[in-house]
């Protein structure tokens, strides 16, 4: 097979696009997406959107570091972490579309919802900030998400369980990466220590939301489908303490703001989505 240029090679067959346009094949094609009879499909869809929105918004913030990271290896690492989270998003959105009966695909959820319809935790949407902000956020996010996904492996929804089992392997690497940076920066120079601590301090008020259950989470946790976020706190605290001690950082004491995935966001989300959604909204269903 020969092509005149790389774009032709990627798009010429019409059936094997890698990274352009919209309308990708369902990432759950061929997976049995029957919802177990005693699981509430609307709750399951809402829950998959929560976890998918967390991953999409965090992934977008990581992608913003492309061409802005301190070195090439770090840029590649952040892009890879963002790609893992984007992959988790796609499967969770597909699961939501199968469960809620609307048949909506991933594009409908990612590109054609308004900010108040996004159920991500606000921690994911905080502005890019500096490298200290990034590592603080990635450490908190990955530690929390790893604890969460691991508790979903025995979920009574087999699709969610399978998505979580894959995600655990990936997010374990994300947490390692952030933890090693946190130690290097915290136990580094006065300046790196100061900025790492400042990143944690700025982020900390939003940590409380990670452990505040929404009623959908409470119902699904009782049904053995979801994990109660309140139950993640002990593992999160233990891992954070381990990292903070090694990094000579202190746990911030700022009061935790209440929250809970109700579509109330910081002012950072709307501009983030405006950028993420701009091409899909300007040229709906475009492929190239």
């Amino acid at each position: 097979m020969s092509f005149d240029n790389v774009y032709e090679a990627l798009s010429g067959d019409g059936d094997a696009r890698w990274a352009f346009g919209t309308g990708f094949a369902d990432p759950l094609a061929g997976v049995d997406t029957t919802v177990p009879p005693d699981v509430d499909p609307a709750d399951l869809a809402a829950y998959c959107l929560m976890l998918g929105d967390d991953a999409l918004v965090m992934s977008h913030r990581l992608q913003e570091w492309c061409t802005n990271a301190p070195d090439l290896e770090e840029e590649v690492a952040l892009a890879n972490i963002g790609l893992d989270l984007l992959g988790q998003t796609r499967m969770l959105y597909a699961r939501a579309g199968h469960a809620d009966g609307t048949g909506r695909g991933e594009d409908a959820y990612a590109y054609f919802r308004e900010p108040e319809e996004f159920a991500n935790v606000r921690l994911a949407e905080t502005p890019r900030g500096d490298f200290g902000d990034l590592i603080a956020k990635l450490l908190v996010f990955a530690t929390w998400r790893l604890a969460l996904l691991q508790r979903l492996i025995p979920s009574r929804d087999p699709v969610l369980a399978a998505i979580a089992a894959k995600g655990v392997k990936e997010v374990a690497y994300h947490r390692d990466h952030a933890a090693q940076w946190a130690v290097r920066l915290g136990d580094g120079t006065d300046e790196s220590h100061r900025r790492m601590q400042a990143g944690l301090d700025r982020l900390w008020p939003l940590v409380g939301e990670l452990f505040t259950p929404h009623e959908v989470e409470e119902r699904l946790a009782r049904a053995g489908v979801a994990a109660d976020p309140a139950g993640l706190r002990a593992e999160f605290d233990a891992v954070l303490d381990q990292v903070l001690t090694a990094a000579t950082l202190r746990r911030p004491e700022a009061p935790l703001e209440p929250g809970g995935r109700r579509g109330t966001h910081t002012e950072a989300l709307a501009p983030l989505l405006a950028e993420l959604q701009s091409v899909a909204r300007a040229l709906p269903e475009a492929t190239w």
Partner: peptide
């Protein structure tokens, strides 16, 4: 898929077919 975000799944499907 190898990883959740593996971008090659569509290409694999097409190559197999």
């Amino acid at each position: 898929p190898t990883y959740s975000g593996c971008p090659a799944m569509d290409a694999m499907r097409a190559d197999l077919i």
